[in-house]
Design a protein around this nucleic acid. Sequence first.
DNA 1: GTGGATTATTACAAAATTGTAATGGAACGC
DNA 2: GCGTTCCATTACAATTTTGTAATAATCCAC
Lengths: 225, 225
Amino acid sequence: MKKIQIIEDDAALRRELRILLEGEGYAVVETEDYENLAAEIMKSEADLILLDINLPGINGEELLRRFRKEKQTPVIMLTSRTSETDEVLSMSYGADDYITKPYNPTILLLRIAAVFRRMNLTGNVLSWGGLSVHPAKGIISNGEKEIVLTKNEMIIFEVLYAKAGQIVSRDELMTALWDNEEYVNDNALTVNISRLRNKLAELGCDGAVETRKKQGYILWNSENM
Amino acid sequence: MKKIQIIEDDAALRRELRILLEGEGYAVVETEDYENLAAEIMKSEADLILLDINLPGINGEELLRRFRKEKQTPVIMLTSRTSETDEVLSMSYGADDYITKPYNPTILLLRIAAVFRRMNLTGNVLSWGGLSVHPAKGIISNGEKEIVLTKNEMIIFEVLYAKAGQIVSRDELMTALWDNEEYVNDNALTVNISRLRNKLAELGCDGAVETRKKQGYILWNSENM
DNA sequence: GTGGATTATTACAAAATTGTAATGGAACGC
DNA sequence: GCGTTCCATTACAATTTTGTAATAATCCAC
């Protein structure tokens, strides 16, 4: 469950947000200690932070700027002012998004969802249809079963995944695997593709990697299979 | 250089955008073939797409929805309408951001920069201070030199990186490496940390991984070193 | 359909990865 | 300071990964 931290001095608004977010299935943490806010926020373990730009005695943008130097947790700024300068400043200090009060609840939820969607495209774990992919670990899992890919297999998968649905040439894969080649047997790629296919088949993803003779390979979105 | 594709029927606005974006150092591709737009856009090799929601004879949201099924390229929607329903629809169909016309050039540029910043946190490559990190390949490079980490070393680095500047317990690292453990010698972690340190030292990152006795390890941002 | 080019599969040996164990060093309490 | 605990280092053997080569299967042109 995703944890969202609300940093907002208006108690009524905090409560409103909590109800909205919890209703959507998020865990909510409220921050009230504005004395040590800077220290607090650095230790935050939330997955996303909603930060009021206009806290008593605190410069929200400056806080964000310092936070960004150390942490990558996504931040959505809240403001009651509508000046565009605010938005410019917030974004340039590394906010991930910006919402003006009074806010539309649906839009807030969608913007939060969009942030998480983008996180998910990145971070440690990719998602491929219903499967989750952990590049560093070399693991692809469908919840029940998981397969362990070797480094080469993972590199191939990653390149194909980045261009899912498009043909990726053997040359491009070769370059990704062995850079500006100390020449490697052409067949080494074929062998590695074969090994990748065998493992994907264990997850029921037979046919996920398709051959286009003289052109390359295509990975199909596991959703469309 | 980042490539941005503009899909917009108003020629004057297209020109304006091109000048703005090229001035900022982006490469710009304009699309004019609205007949085969759906096919065009699927083949796009741009790093980001600016998509007018209101094209002649085309439903921008529907186009986006279908695009999102196959590709992850970030999309910022442009609209002249100001209805909140538009925003709700666009975001729920997978837009990464939403800009209303007339737009503020500075804000557009910042939102584009924010999208790229987020991409960079993710995708295939992480950045760690001045270094670039490729989890699947197990490579960390500083432009001059590059080191090749093994899978275990990369997993450790990734966990430490995700909490850079914070103490990460040995337990947390053990769990990341060997899950709910078929018990592995406690020392295996120590050995792998040691091997990681040796390799980081080759990049001049001595001391990047610090021991906190009885507590765990800390990775320091390579910028602060 | 036959030949030639392209991709697949299998088995194997060289190389890399990884846990273990044995030894050494550093910090801390007393 | 001494002993104990916690972490670091080194060397080594078992396992895994990976390129190669030999052979088989597939596809396309003609």
